[in-house]
């Protein structure tokens, strides 16, 4: 395909045709909207949901306490909600990781036929409607739901357990919805694991814990990191799970953003909160990319050392 060093004009034309649609699509309907959102977060909220076109950094002041002005007051509630969201997202990451890690080993040691079937079975629920999957937990956890009915008919409890509209319900919902995102990257790294290294570690007298800690864990770290990142992101911005399973008691940043846009109609303030979510996500992705690059470099250096 490489016709010498120069690109023929025909090829250049073909490349132009291939790239124009995506450039227009992502330029006009992704980058520009996000840019406008950034601008909105620095505008003054107007009456009836509009904006006043003047520089107004006080939306941030309302959240962080600085800068203040324009009649905005510091409301510590918002920092609390943001921190809570970070905490719920982190907890979701930990639970999905603990749940999925052993499963990845289970699947990786199967025969090819069973492996394909089980992988398919684990991927499929991801395509069931998000609302339906969360709604199912509403049916399970509410006072007259399946879990309480089962426990009461078994005589294990007299009163229904209060599970719905709690942090517990929100975490369960997030874990359930995001499990496939954690499983697939971890599975990919476990599948590539070189078992001869595990065996070598055992032959050299390492205990199972040492083998896990010094051999298996570092080798599967890229999958763990990838899974953590792609679970954390949708967990952080989620608002469907907390609005179904958290009710008015458990709030996440997503719920506040939704209210600012569709009820309070303070779009600049909603944009400011969305900016904080977006900034957290971009920082995380940046950290992950740098970490992966460093890991790749180390590997290359280690490889060079062997030669």
């Amino acid at each position: 395909m490489a016709e010498g060093g120069t690109i023929s004009s025909q090829r250049r034309k073909a490349l132009f045709v291939l790239l124009t649609p995506i450039t227009l699509l992502l330029g006009a309907f992704f980058l520009i909207p996000l840019g406008i959102m950034v601008v909105y977060s620095f505008l003054e909220p107007g009456l009836y949901g509009g904006v006043v076109w003047s520089f107004y950094p006080y939306n941030y002041g309302r959240i962080f306490g600085w800068p203040l002005g324009g009649g905005e007051e510091f409301e510590p509630l918002y920092i609390q909600i943001i921190l809570n969201s970070l905490y719920y997202a982190a907890l979701t990451v930990i639970v999905t990781l603990v749940v999925c890690y052993p499963v990845a080993f289970w699947v990786s040691r199967m025969g090819p036929m069973a492996k394909n079937i089980v992988l398919f079975a684990i991927t499929l629920p991801f395509f069931a409607n998000l609302l339906v999957r969360i709604y199912a937990w509403l049916l399970l956890l509410r006072p007259t739901g399946a879990v309480n009915t089962a426990l009461m008919s078994l005589g294990l409890i007299d009163q229904p357990l209060n599970m719905i509209f709690t942090e517990f319900a929100v975490i369960v919902g997030l874990v359930y919805v995001l499990t496939p995102f954690m499983f697939l990257p971890i599975y990919a790294s476990v599948e590539r694991l070189d078992w001869s290294l595990v065996q070598a570690s055992q032959d050299l007298g390492a205990t199972p814990f040492q083998t896990f800690r010094r051999v298996i864990l570092p080798l599967t770290a890229p999958g763990i990191a990838g899974g953590c990142v792609i679970v954390f992101i949708p967990a952080l911005g989620n608002f469907i799970v907390p609005s179904f399973l958290g009710g008015s008691k458990v709030q996440m940043t997503g719920n506040v953003i939704e209210r600012q846009f569709l009820q309070a109609r303070n779009w600049p303030f909603g944009s400011t909160l969305a900016m904080i979510v977006m900034a957290s996500v971009l920082l995380l992705v940046l950290a992950y990319t740098l970490w992966m690059r460093r890991a790749a470099n180390n590997e290359r250096l280690a490889g060079a050392g062997h030669v």
């Binding site: 909207p33 992101i233 846009f261 977006m278 992705v285």
Partner: peptide, 13 residues
């Protein structure tokens, strides 16, 4: 990787 809610409100604005 953009959270749905961020993309949703950016498009709305």
């Amino acid at each position: 990787i953009m959270p749905d809610i961020v993309l949703g409100i950016a498009l709305l604005i």
